[in-house]
Design a protein around this nucleic acid. Sequence first.
DNA 1: CTGAAAGCGCTTACAG
DNA 2: CTGAAAGCGCTTACAG
Lengths: 339, 339
Amino acid sequence: MTTIYDIAKETGYSAPTVSKALNGSPEVSERTRERIVDAAKRMGYTPNAMAKALSTKKSYLIGIIYDDLYMLRGMEHPLFAGIIDAFKSRIEVAGYELIFLSRQLGPRKLNYLDHARMRHIDGVYIVNTSLGDTGMDELVAGDLPCVSANDPFPGVPRVVSENYQGARTAVAALCDMGHRRIAHLSGPITEKSPAGLERRSGYLDELSARGIKAEPELTVECAYWHAEAGRQAMNALLDSGASPSAVFAACDTIAYGAMAAARDRGLSVPGDISFVGFDDYEVSAYLTPSLTTIRQDRVRLGTEAAELMLRILSGEDIRPESVPRVATQLIARDSAASL
Amino acid sequence: MTTIYDIAKETGYSAPTVSKALNGSPEVSERTRERIVDAAKRMGYTPNAMAKALSTKKSYLIGIIYDDLYMLRGMEHPLFAGIIDAFKSRIEVAGYELIFLSRQLGPRKLNYLDHARMRHIDGVYIVNTSLGDTGMDELVAGDLPCVSANDPFPGVPRVVSENYQGARTAVAALCDMGHRRIAHLSGPITEKSPAGLERRSGYLDELSARGIKAEPELTVECAYWHAEAGRQAMNALLDSGASPSAVFAACDTIAYGAMAAARDRGLSVPGDISFVGFDDYEVSAYLTPSLTTIRQDRVRLGTEAAELMLRILSGEDIRPESVPRVATQLIARDSAASL
DNA sequence: CTGAAAGCGCTTACAG
DNA sequence: CTGAAAGCGCTTACAG
């Protein structure tokens, strides 16, 4: 590995001058810069990020937290995987790299904050935490820039979809098709992770805006954002004797399980019962019938989060309330039809 | 941030002794060790990984290459996302962390090797490369430990599924149900990424082992490992007038698209035509009908890759040919039925 | 068992 | 415009 000292020796300049030349400092002459850059190229020089970080106290590392007990499938989650992808694309243009934060390194357990400190992380993208993640309070309370892709944390700006409005759109679409008995398979309802709550509110408010009385037995809460939970909730709904003509599922995977449950009971979709999901995963277009759903814009979610992170990193002070929600979009397919 | 110098001052020992004590060196007295460890805990000491890496020349960073032009959906790919998850879980127990390698950092383009050098990466997990990735040759030719999760590279051990045997199992299952006219929607056929080839070979060999003559028009190559490609291939197959009673799709997503195409033509599955996939993604169980498929064991694929990486990192010399394939498993569901 | 010295590869004042 | 000095936080011989 060639170092700036090798280049210094080769060109006859000193190490500091080489450093300045390579970093494009204005206080080095054009001629010197050229010579040094040439030599660096010729000698196959690669800067050592560790050494750089050690002296500048800036690592260009963004930690990513993705611990997902709740969704039961780690990074396979297509929503978050897509968001991370987009985040990475944007953030690396600004020179930052993504490193996974973890709570176990070698023999010892640690918390995210310790890990972040250890690596001198510049910022943290909190994509998903499981309920048992201790140390999140400390992490967000510190002065480390954080952006959340999902759950709220005090003082942390987050970039999330218009859950409430999206849910209203979904229900409105069903109402416009003539449905009145619309059930809702909600996500887990908890303040800490309000997407479920927000979508349920949208469901309830849209019904009431249309003068439809919401019947409590038409809403069933799923324990997880997961197909199996959707199947169980759908079975519970049908067992209860409620006979909705349409179902708004809080996410696509819940819809998958629910549609499978309906099919297993011999109900035809959308002949006997219509379904609308929320997310728009790739496969949703290929189900039988294809799933009508509310699309979350993963590219925008990830890109905006990166943009926000960069603004914070450059010293801007962001008020969490000032961050706009990302719009959703109704994708009409075959699983929902007019009564 | 407290450093070992702070601890040295506090305890009255020297920095080297603090360093040794904290690293559990045997050449420090038990009593000293205790005092130092206590002080470190009390003072909230977190070691600085950069400084450590700089002096030891070991970063405990594993680079991960995931560039996916071929699959058209980055990390959303459930197979590779699951594998990475499992890899991470195993590798972090040994103290290693995962960092994404990229080809663009800040204003300048770089190749993976430069990036790896810059960060003093200890090893690289090559999950997926797109065809245009230049510099892979250099990367694998260097002395950086590499493990591949998919494509072959000279000298690089890889941990992949029993593609050939899995395909034979899939076709065997269809034959056992009485099917003789079995079509194959293959993945892209290329030496550089032989999964498609291997599965097609399995298909052809199983047919011939059963005395069934493979008809060329029954095999259609998909341009991508992707649902839309599956739909197009299925349409091409049906347009050609071939009328298979069963289809073996090279992966689940291809099967999704193919089944959708069949449905759009009014064919019932499995009444008119049976389908078997390859992968077993979570949703495959919730399709209508649920998809019979060959499961790739993502947890084992990732864990074994990590295990292999650790062995290489500890100096073991691995012959790529010596790495066993990971077994697949037939998951019988509803999309394939007896003739 | 403990510590003084030097080094890992870079950058940041500061002096000239 | 250029360079000598010192420092970032750690570890590794080496001496005692």
